[in-house]
């Protein structure tokens, strides 16, 4: 057995242990990425091997939390993939506007940038006060950050560009207040977003959603877990509702793909069929 294969064995044992002790189950995450992340955590830890770390990880919840941080990489952006938000604005919002009130679920929302971008979009399109968003993530630390709605000011230039590329025409600077090196988002963007913990591996669906966004989360999952998530989303969505995936994720080759139509080819925005 090579040194590398031995590491694979140690990782399998560790993930099994974490599941039994803490209930967090990462066994159905795609191997290559989780191995990279765990290996990075190990390199920054005082331990030589996963076997060595395991004994303390299973006994010390604080140490486990640090590992959890390493596993849940929360990379996100405001108006990430501007073309996606442009399609939302031009092709999806007109449908949503026909409802008196809409409910939207952001699954794997990380620090909230995607939900806040959506709030900007909905407000600009005249839907202020007519929506509620549920923004969920497995990582409670990142949710606490999301609820604050505070971002590094250094990101604002990039976000402004993304916003403009997505078809935004207002002044992006009106959406935040600069305080030292931080940008504090406007209160009216936060008030209709509920941030809550939710684990896609284990938890149940949210009912009667008009739209579910789960972008750049399932790419880290093995096929069986992807199918589970998609069932969850399908059960949550009303007929005629929208499912939005990351730009490199598709419903092709997926069981429930037959019940959905892609709105614009390549947009990864899928509409659930009626009946």
């Amino acid at each position: 057995m090579t040194a590398d294969e031995l590491v694979d064995v140690e990782i399998r044992l560790l993930l099994e242990g974490l599941q039994q002790v803490y209930g967090y189950d990462f066994r159905d995450y795609a191997d290559a990425s989780i191995k990279r992340r765990l290996t990075q955590w190990l390199a920054e830890s005082p331990f030589e091997t996963f076997s060595q770390a395991q004994s303390r990880l299973l006994r010390e919840p604080e140490l486990f939390v640090s590992l959890l941080q390493g596993i849940t990489v929360n990379v996100t952006d405001m108006f990430r993939d501007p073309s996606f938000f442009r399609t939302l604005r031009e092709q999806v919002i007109p449908f949503l506007k026909t409802y008196p009130f809409v409910k939207i679920w952001h699954a794997g929302c990380a620090s909230g940038e995607e939900a806040y971008s959506m709030a900007i979009l909905l407000n600009e399109e005249g839907m202020a006060g007519r929506y509620r968003m549920y923004a969920t993530d497995i990582d409670e630390a990142v949710l606490a950050k999301a609820a604050q709605g505070v971002m590094p000011i250094t990101e604002m230039q990039r976000y402004t560009r993304n916003y403009q590329k997505s078809g935004g025409t207002a002044s992006f600077a009106d959406y935040y207040t600069a305080r030292y090196d931080r940008a504090i988002l406007a209160a009216n963007l936060k008030k209709d977003i509920v941030f809550a913990p939710h684990n896609l591996v284990a938890d149940a669906e949210f009912g009667e959603m008009n739209m579910v966004l789960c972008r750049n989360v399932m790419i880290y999952f093995k096929p069986a877990l992807k199918e589970r998530c998609l069932r969850l989303f399908d059960n949550s969505l009303l007929p005629g509702g929208f499912l939005c995936l990351g730009l490199k994720e598709t419903l092709e080759r997926r069981k429930m793909g037959d019940h959905y139509d892609e709105l614009v080819p390549g947009s990864r925005i899928y509409r659930k069929r009626y009946g």
Binding site: A30, S33, V75, N216, I219
Partner: peptide, 21 residues
């Protein structure tokens, strides 16, 4: 590899993508 994503090979010989930093 697509722009803006890491490309990885999984143990089962399938490709995977990641949006890690």
């Amino acid at each position: 590899a697509p722009p803006n994503y890491h490309l990885l090979v999984e143990r089962d010989g399938f490709l995977s993508l990641s949006a890690d930093p």
